[in-house]
Each structure stands twice: as structure tokens, then as C-alpha cells.
Write a protein that binds this DNA or RNA. Structure first.
Lengths: 339, 339
DNA sequence: CTGAAAGCGCTTACAG
DNA sequence: CTGAAAGCGCTTACAG
């Protein structure tokens, strides 16, 4: 009668089901959650009532009452980047069959967004949390501090070795590609990056260390821009780098989108790749191998990262302690035609 | 004392906050949700307690008590397809500032997944629902039937005109590109598609109608495969089509990934595009314009779709009736070099 | 401006 | 195998 009652008219509750099945609320509850602990007759009556009323259980109420949750929050910086899509898909493939539901939050590489999402998602009491990388604002860190369920970090490896994480050394990957480029004889190797998220900067640091080690480091050959990565931006970065430093003989791009753009631009400019200019990328997206020349890049196993992180979280949520706190999935430098 | 109590030790509740602030539970509640209706002194004490205890409100409890929800469920078939990523991003941009949170579900083009997601998400009592297209299983339709909050359908337009939807006529888009190809003088135009979701089939139907109208329809030139779209598959479809029907002078691909693959393959085979074979795609992904030859394709405004659908949902959730139930955002045939 | 009580829809020990 | 009661964390009318 009160306006609160009105909702019951709109959607059936468990107590409607119980009434319709002629049993108590809690028998109805049990028939649904532990069907084997209930008589066949009761179970059938309840199921019939569920069907007749179109009953859909109220997850939030269930979670609240049971002090459990089937929600997993995963926070990634971007969905436009295929790397994270692959990771999320893999996570979903292991967590969904286990009865969990994913809440996917996209921070767009903004620390404030990251914090906002963390706050919003933790307010849902997720059973587990998957975050990308270790860097976050103090406020975000504080929010995380009050969270008591398992957390697994994606993409990066903790130095501290006291956090659960699945990833690879971004610095090492940046270093490895730079080393290869030097081995191939390139001397004036530029590094071009956008977005400037922590992983990009770690790769840049890897590049820097190797270039310094070879006494070839020149800060002017580093082009870092906070803009969003895109094919068009890659083309633009190529233009800028070559205009200012025609001596450049190779460019190592922070990701494949940028490198693809550079390859397209080189073609427009009739620049011979890799003879005049070598181009390398990062991630090995599907298009990389198909380009002409085929793109030299670093292959990352994000599917593996998602899968292993999902499994680690699963075992943590079961209260087990996983064999390893930190899983290094590695990476692979793939030399193709462009460098 | 009981094991139930233990949770309170782990995370602060509103009643902990109230105790710490020396006020009633409901004053604390009010201080948080309607800060202006509370004295400055009280507000400050409550805020201090919140901070000190690291209190995070329990969204599920709030939603349950208030019979409201800040959750919006959106169900899309894929995240690997940039089209849906763009759509979701746009939706998020309008709904998030309004205080809503997105639950993103990916059905992988499987009706059973679609149904499962619908069931799982509706169990969270979302304030609104965004779904992709109209086709779904009977079971899914039944689940939807019990849902009483607003629903807006993305991508397609309803014939019935009794549903809320934002999209464009996929059939018309397929027809328009086919017409253009005929105008350009191509005669043996093949249609190649993967995934075979409803929208793909509608585009195929558009192609069919136009080809029939021109008395050029040949069922053998339609290559439909349920496989997942990818660049590699596009290359493969080109091979198959040309092997069986060398007379083909143009291929209209169901999406850009496929068309890109065909362009790459054509280059490997030294096939002149468009002289020997014209290639057209669908969606106008970023790479399309950069290819060589640049890809002829159909530009779809998924950002617009997401934005308008989000706005429509917003006004429906406010109880308003939006000016239009059905918004046609159209499409644009973009003729470039490949056809 | 502030508070006591009831209730959101469900589950969990505890009895029988 | 089944049920009455209490409680999950919060908000909502209703009083004062």
C-alpha cells in the first residue's frame, strides 16, 4: 500500500515465490541455493513458482545477507588498446565459469579516474580486485588500503615482491628491443612514445639505459608526448623526429599503433624502411605481421597475463596461497622486416 | 562476537561512523547523502569520522534500502571490435557524470551468453539497460519481459517503432555500398562476411536486394562464415573467393578487419587494387584511411550512437519521454582508392 | 536540524 | 527435511 510496497507489484520477490509455492521464505531460499538439501516435491513447487512469477533473485540482497560477493572488479586504463581487451577477455574466461561476474572500469590513464573507479567499485564489496600496474595516487592507495579481499596486479612486476602480480619487466622489454636495434647496426635510435603511462616510461628507461651503456644516448632523440596513441599520431611523430633530427636511422615506438602510423607515413614519403629508417613497435598487434614491411615489435602475452592473474585471484579467494606471488610471463622481441 | 560480527572489525559501517561522530545512524546517513540538510558541525564531525575510519559506503545496501540503483547494464557482442569500444566509451561519457556506473557484458555473439548476461545483470536491478540489436533467444526475451526499467537498443532500428533505439539501417547501408560499387562499373561483386551476427546478415540482405535489382545476383558470390573476424581471415576469404570465382572484380567485406586482411593479401599476391579487384569494407576503422590503397568503406557513427543512446536512457530514467523513440544516425559510404 | 523504527530482499545459524 | 527470528548496511517517511 505504501509506495514501498509498490515495488513488490512490479517484480516478484522470494517471499512471493514462497507464498505461491506454499512454503516458508527460507525453504524457498534453500530450494534455490542448495536444491539437494530439500525434498523433490518442494523443489519442484518452488521452481514452478519461480517460473510462473518470472522471479529473478536480487543479487545485491543476497550478497548483503550472505556477506559474500560474486563480483570481481577489474580496472584497466583503456579499452581502445587491444592489449587490455585481450587481457580482460582472458580474465573473464577463467572467472566466469567459477561463478564470478566482472565489473570492468576504464581509467583512461587518469589517476583521478583510477581513484574514482576504485572507490565506486570497492563500494560494491567485490570478492576480488584486479588492477593495472602499481602506480596510483595517494588517495587511491588509501582507498585500496581499506580493502581486505585479494588484489592481483596486472602487467607489471613488483620489486618489493610482497604483492601479487602477473606481468613482465617493461624496463627489460624496452632494453631488449633497443639492444637488438644496436646489434643490427642502427646508431641514432630515437624513442617515441605517447600516453606516458608508467609502463611506457619504464620502457623508455630501458631504452635509455641501453643507449647510455652504448654511449649513444641523446636526450634529444626521445620524443615523449602525453597525447593519446593513434595511427595518426605515429605518422606525426615520425615527421617531427625526422624534421628535427635527420640523422635518425631507427625509431622505437612505445606501441604498435604508433609504429603502424609511422610505417604508413614512411610509405607516403617514399622513405625506405628499414634501409633509410628502421621502425620498431611494441605489443605485436594482429596487423603488425601483415604490414609491408612487416613490423618488428615486442610480443607480449596479455592473454597469458589475464589467464594467470585470474587463476591467482581465484586461488586467493579460495583462501589458498598460490605457489608464486609474482609471475613473470616474459616477452619476446620479434624481428621482422621493418628493422 | 559471532562470526557475523567479525566483518564489522574488518570494514567500517555507517554505524561505526555515527558512533565515532557521536550522532545517530541516520544523521550520519544524511550528512553523506544530503549534506546541505545538516548542521555544519555535524557534517564536519561525520566527515572526520569517515576519513578516520576509511569508511566506504556499501552501494548494494544503499540500493537495496532506497529501492534505487546507480547501475546501468550494457550488453555488447564484442570488445575486440573497435565499434563497440567506441560505443561504450561514448555511453560512459554521458552516464558517468550523471552518477551512473556501467556494468559491461560481452556476449561474444552467442545467444546463450547474451541470455546468461541478461539474467546476471538484471539480478543487480540496474536502473537502465542498453542492449545491442533486437535479435535474442526466447529465453532472453522472457528475462527482458520481467524487467521494468528503461531499455534502449543500440545499433539497429526497430521496424515496430515501439522500442527505444539508436542506430541505423544495416540493410540500407549494405545496399548503399553495393549500389556504389555497381555505379563504379563493377559487375561480379562478391560479399564476404564472418561472425554472421544479425547486423551482418542485414547488410548481406541489402547487398542481395541491390544485386538482384541489377540482375547481377549470384548466390555463389556470397561467402558467409561463422568464424570470428580477423585480418587473417580476410586474407583467407580473398583466396577462397578468387580461387573459386576468378571472374570476381570486387569484394564487399562485412567489416574493415576482413577488408584490411584482403588488402594485405592482395599486396602479397601482387593483385592490383582496384584495377584487378576492388575491395570495400564496413565501419571505417582508423587504419582504413591509412592503407595503401586507402580502403573504401562505410563510415558508422558509433560514438554518436553511444552518446544519443546514453542521453535517451538518461531521460527515460528521469521519467521523461524523449522526443523520439527511434533515432536514425545514418551512415556514410566513403569511396577511397580501393574501389 | 536531529532521531527511533521499520523495512529493502535475502541468508544464516539454530531449532525442531 | 522444514521453519521462526535475527541480521546484512543502509534509507525513508514520520516525529519532534
Amino acid at each position: 500500500m505504501s509506495s514501498r510496497r509498490r515495488r513488490s507489484l512490479e517484480r516478484a520477490t522470494l517471499s512471493d515465490v514462497a507464498r505461491s509455492a506454499g512454503c516458508s521464505l527460507m525453504s524457498a531460499s534453500r530450494a534455490l541455493s542448495q536444491p539437494e538439501r530439500v525434498s523433490d516435491a518442494l523443489r519442484e513447487r518452488v521452481m514452478a513458482a519461480v517460473k510462473a512469477l518470472g522471479y529473478v533473485p536480487h543479487t545485491a540482497a543476497r550478497n548483503l545477507a550472505s556477506a559474500r560477493s560474486n563480483l570481481i572488479a577489474v580496472i584497466i586504463p583503456s579499452l581502445s588498446n587491444a592489449v587490455f581487451v585481450d587481457t580482460v577477455e582472458a580474465i573473464q574466461r577463467v572467472l566466469m565459469p567459477a561463478g564470478y561476474e566482472l565489473m570492468i572500469g576504464v581509467s583512461h590513464y587518469h589517476p583521478e579516474e583510477d581513484e574514482r573507479l576504485l572507490r565506486a567499485y570497492l563500494a560494491h564489496q567485490p570478492a576480488g580486485l584486479l588492477v593495472t600496474g602499481f602506480e596510483r595516487s595517494d588517495a587511491a592507495r588509501e582507498v585500496l588500503g581499506s580493502y581486505t579481499s585479494p588484489i592481483v596486479t596486472l602487467m607489471e612486476l613488483s620489486d618489493a615482491d610482497e604483492e601479487y602480480c602477473v606481468g613482465f619487466s617493461q624496463l627489460e622489454a624496452g632494453a631488449a628491443m633497443t639492444r637488438k636495434l644496436l646489434e643490427r647496426g642502427y646508431r641514432n635510435i630515437a624513442f617515441a612514445a605517447a600516453q606516458l603511462d608508467p609502463r611506457t616510461l619504464q620502457r623508455a628507461e630501458g631504452y635509455r639505459q641501453v643507449m647510455r651503456g652504448a654511449s649513444r644516448y641523446d636526450a634529444a632523440l626521445e620524443l615523449l608526448t602525453p597525447q593519446v596513441s593513434s595511427i595518426g599520431l605515429g605518422a606525426e611523430l615520425l615527421d617531427r623526429l625526422l624534421a628535427q633530427h635527420p640523422e635518425i636511422d631507427a625509431i622505437f615506438f612505445n606501441n604498435d599503433d604508433l609504429a603502424l602510423g609511422a610505417l604508413f607515413r614512411a610509405r607516403q614519403l617514399n622513405l625506405a624502411v628499414p634501409e633509410r629508417l628502421a621502425v620498431a613497435g611494441f605489443n605485436d598487434l594482429p596487423a603488425a605481421a601483415w604490414m609491408h614491411p612487416a613490423l618488428t615489435t615486442v610480443r607480449t602475452t596479455r592473454g597469458e597475463i589475464g589467464k594467470l592473474a585470474g587463476q591467482m585471484l581465484l586461488s586467493l579467494m579460495r583462501g589458498e596461497s598460490p605457489p608464486q606471488r609474482r609471475i613473470d610471463v616474459g616477452f619476446e622481441v620479434v624481428m621482422r622486416e621493418s628493422a
